[in-house]
Amino acid sequence: MKPVMTFALMTLRNLLRRRTIWGISIVILLALFGLGQIPGYGISNEGRFILDFGLFGLEIGALLLAIGLAANIYPRDKEQKTVMPLIAVPLSRGQYLMGRFIGAAMVQAAAMLVGCIGLMVILLMNGLNIPVDLFPATCLLLVEGWFLLAVVFFFSFWTSPPLNAPLTVLLFILSQMSVSGFINILPGAQGFMRFLRLLLPHMDVFHIKDPIAHGVGIPGIYFLLAALYGLAYMAFMLSLALAVFRSRDLK
């Protein structure tokens, strides 16, 4: 574990120096603060509006950060040949992947935490209460972000960065669709579409912005199980990414 954590910290330091990451984070924060300035649909709906759009913003932020953080890591390492001395001697391919992933996941966690705090500040500034489920909901969005990060790493081992981003966004969109919604894209091939949908992850488990915005009490067990589902899917995607990476030649 020590090699992985050392490499993760190395990755963290490296990523924090990238302007892209700061750019995405600043845009998200500005968007969140902009929310506080929009009147919403009247005083009674204001909190709901801020929560609904704030959590949506965090989710999109998690997606953008996942792409911004991870899409270019491996291709860049490969192009600059910095991956060679690392994999030849101190690290195995698995340790390399985990180190890079954990480093990026730490940046994402920090960004989501800042986003959550920003949202809380906006609610307070508008004289609104902070729902108890806001923090767990952000944690769930973070799990979604980590899952997307694993997806981006998976794509990065066999596609180029310009292709990685649209593929990840496509997966993000399709994974949000309900089974029936997905089948309706091609109603003529119901069986095939159902099978195809079942192959995709079900990211709707992370969507609890509506109930939170509407003040619906969410059972604690739901947060735990949704996080478990997300982390399990993340582990699955990482194992797939590693299998692809292990089969790749480092020319």
């Binding site: 649909y41 509407h214 003040g215 619906v216 009490g217 739901y222």
Partner: peptide, 19 residues
């Protein structure tokens, strides 16, 4: 999500229907 609004604690259409 706001097109169909319920009071807090009430079931709404959307993901949360199972809660």
């Amino acid at each position: 999500s706001s097109r169909h609004v319920h009071d807090a604690g009430e079931r709404n259409h959307g993901t949360e229907w199972f809660f």
